[in-house]
Nucleic acid binder design. Structure first.
Length: 440
DNA sequence: GTTGCCGGGAA
DNA sequence: TTCCCGGCAAC
């Protein structure tokens, strides 16, 4: 459509329609011209259209054109599929497994309006036979991109995308020049007008919905969800893929903030994530699959081979069918403790524990009022570097240093090695901390 | 006074 | 996180 003339805003020219051809099958095409017997023949708008208006349809994939009356055309602005009789061999489009697929009609039951169709899915050898109702069938290929076709305006799935933050952010990130047309289907000649125009609005609408769900969900605004992949993230300066895959994004400039909806996003709760080094897995999100691997390349290869079939040029569709997840890594190292095992596994520490307890028990028995016994308690090894001390006292706790472990009578590094051999001391002794080598 | 070690600061 | 030290309390 390069007439050079600016078309009227709601020009019907360019609208994609389906029309019968000589072989009694419907073929998709585009309205190329409108001939109206009305007194304003130059008017291409639908205002002066009459029943005698003739539409010149140019069929896809060739230079074949034919004229039709509006009642003969199927498509937006014309009649629908109701009452249409489809013959075997008719090429149709339908949503299968959430994706738009091509299919051929095998049989059309005009009484029930049910069709038997043979789905032609790429990558599968054996065609699938399905029963579909007429209203589930389309004669025109949807211009939605593959991933939007996948969503198929299913808002529950949109919500899922929002839940799956990283996936969603990856989905939104489409460079501006790609927004005009999907990666799967390059901009066709009909993209700019009519039917296509509406789909563009649809794409933007879906993108906006995803954005809204991302920014409003109290769960979703984890900083890493925006880790630079999304081109709309205000703080996202990185354009490389590394940042969104790293899982260690820069924190937002404020420590705590409120979203527009007034939902508190307590960054303090989010902050500890920064310290955890999690490993990342890549999971195939194709329905019913769930394949998980540890590298991006592997999962893309899996999707390509198992689900999508041969790669087309410039086709990066596999990106849309996997998600990246963090899995909890083992607890951090215990470097500060001069010992590489948690206290409850440390025999010295256990001795200390028992000794303390015995000591406390003894003094309880002897004095009636015992001094506090410090029992180390580790709630969660990873959450606390130093064991917390639970004070167990007798009748009343004696004043003084609360939580201070009792002075042990054991020899310490200082006594054993002396000041001369300070380098032989355990690190804790060097640092004037509780000796870990000669504990109670 | 000596010793053990907690709490906290600096790098 | 590592290293160091002031200071407190037990001895």
């Amino acid at each position: 459509m390069s007439t050079g003339k600016r078309l009227a805003k709601r020009s019907i020219i360019g609208t994609r329609v389906a029309a019968l051809r000589e072989d009694e099958l419907y073929y998709s095409g585009m309205i190329q011209a409108v001939k109206t017997p009305a007194p304003f023949p130059e008017n291409n708008n639908s205002i002066n259209l009459t029943p005698n208006t003739r539409y010149t349809v140019r069929f896809d994939g060739g230079k074949v054109t034919r004229e039709y009356r509006d009642a003969e055309l199927i498509g937006p602005g014309f009649r629908g599929l109701a009452g249409v009789r489809l013959r075997p061999g008719q090429r149709v489009f339908l949503t299968y497994n959430g994706r738009e697929v091509r299919a051929d009609v095998l049989e059309h039951d005009h009484q029930t309006d049910e069709l038997r169709v043979q789905v032609l899915t790429p990558g599968t050898e054996v065609p699938i036979e399905l029963r579909k109702r007429l209203e589930e069938i389309r004669l025109l290929e949807s211009r939605k991109s593959a991933r939007l076709a996948d969503v198929d305006t299913d808002f529950a799935r949109l919500a899922d995308m929002a839940g799956d933050r990283r996936r969603a952010s990856a989905t939104i990130e489409v460079p501006a020049h790609h927004m005009q047309g999907s990666r799967k289907r390059g901009p066709s000649s009909s993209c700019e007008l009519g039917y296509g125009e509406r789909d563009d609005q649809m794409n933007e609408c879906n993108a906006a919905l995803v954005l809204m769900s991302l920014s409003c969900s109290p769960n979703s605004p984890r900083p890493s969800a925006w880790g630079g992949r999304s081109s709309v993230s205000p703080g996202a300066s990185s354009s490389s893929g590394s940042s969104w895959r790293s899982g260690t994004p820069s924190p937002p400039p404020v420590s705590s903030s409120f979203s527009d909806e007034g939902i508190a996003m307590d960054y303090e709760d989010l902050h500890p994530r920064k310290k955890r080094i999690n490993s990342v897995v890549f999971e195939c999100t194709w329905r019913g699959c769930g394949y998980i691997t540890n590298t991006c390349l592997k999962v893309e290869a899996h999707i390509r081979q198992t689900h999508l079939g041969p790669k087309k040029e410039g086709d990066h569709e596999e990106e849309f069918y996997y998600t990246e997840r963090e899995v909890a890594a083992p607890p951090p190292t215990l470097s500060h403790r001069d010992m590489c095992r948690p206290p409850h596994e440390d025999p010295d520490y256990q001795r200390q524990l028992v000794g303390s307890y015995r000591q406390g028990l003894l003094s309880t028995l002897q004095n009636g009022a015992a001094r506090p016994i410090s029992i180390p308690v580790t709630h969660s090894w990873s959450s606390s570097q130093s064991p917390k001390h639970l004070k167990i006292s007798g009748v009343s706790s004696s004043p003084g240093s609360p939580g201070r472990r009792p002075r042990s009578d054991n020899k310490k590094c200082r006594k054993v090695y002396g000041m001369d051999q300070r380098d032989l001391w355990c690190t804790q002794c060097k640092w004037k901390k509780a000796c870990t080598r000669f504990g109670d």
